[in-house]
């Protein structure tokens, strides 16, 4: 373990004032990480969030510190302590920014979302018609092959690009559980569409599987 990581660990594992000081330093370190992420994404955030970023950063740092102290015994020094700690700050701040960005937005998928999905792909002109046909078949398969929960998750995350964290919050679930639902839905669709579900130079949309 590198000396800086050892020093972090020693401080956080000590008692009394030494530990209090280490926890305070950790929190300040996490706040800086959260602010870095907010600054990195500022251009893509709704304007109304600008005034809330400091508070979101403080809260994300609080939540990350709790996770870190809870998991401290699992840190083995394979990475730098700072990188290990940052991943929790990034996780908390990213989730907070996503949730706040979507605070007053509906996650219901409208019929235009499917068109936006195609438009977002910036397809070569010759592929748009083929892709629209494929998407029509995918919509039919979603209706017949997926469970209601899989349908909702797939449409929201894949078609309407709702962040998984946002969907998880509204469903009272977790990122991991919602992703698992998405993963299972995609597996069903892959089974249905076979080779057409594979990437590779656009061959997937060139003809229906018979």
């Amino acid at each position: 373990m590198d000396p800086e990581s050892s020093a972090w660990l020693a401080g956080l594992r000590s008692d009394g004032a030494v530990r209090d000081q280490a926890v305070a330093e950790l929190h300040a370190f996490l706040v800086r990480a959260a602010r870095h992420e907010a600054a990195r994404r500022r251009a893509s955030l709704p304007a109304h969030m600008a005034a809330d970023l400091d508070e979101l950063g403080q809260q994300a740092a609080n939540d990350a510190a709790v996770m870190i102290l809870d998991k401290l015994d699992t840190y083995r020094g394979a990475s730098r302590f700072t990188t290990w700690a940052w991943k929790f700050a990034v996780y908390q701040m990213s989730a907070a920014l996503r949730r706040e960005s979507w605070r007053n937005r509906s996650v219901a998928v409208d019929s235009d979302a499917w068109e936006r999905f195609i438009d977002g792909g910036a397809l070569e002109p010759g592929r748009v018609v083929q892709f629209r046909e494929l998407l029509g078949e995918v919509r039919a398969a979603i209706a017949t092959d997926l469970t209601p929960r899989q349908r909702d998750v797939f449409a929201a995350v894949v078609i309407d690009e709702v962040p998984i964290d946002v969907l998880a919050e509204r469903l009272g679930s977790s990122r991991g559980a919602v992703y698992k639902t998405l993963h299972d839905a995609r597996a069903k669709l892959r089974a249905r569409f076979g080779a057409r579900a594979e990437t590779g130079g656009g061959a997937a949309v060139e003809g229906p599987e018979r």
Partner: peptide
């Protein structure tokens, strides 16, 4: 302009082994 691979990936994902969110989080630092 793209050939649609990105849309295919978004629709169907991949059949390769997937660590999941928790599995990814565990080793993101490494």
């Amino acid at each position: 302009m793209t050939n649609g691979d990105d849309l295919i990936r978004r629709l169907f994902g991949a059949s390769a082994p997937d660590a999941g969110c928790d599995g990814g989080m565990e080793v993101f630092d490494l």
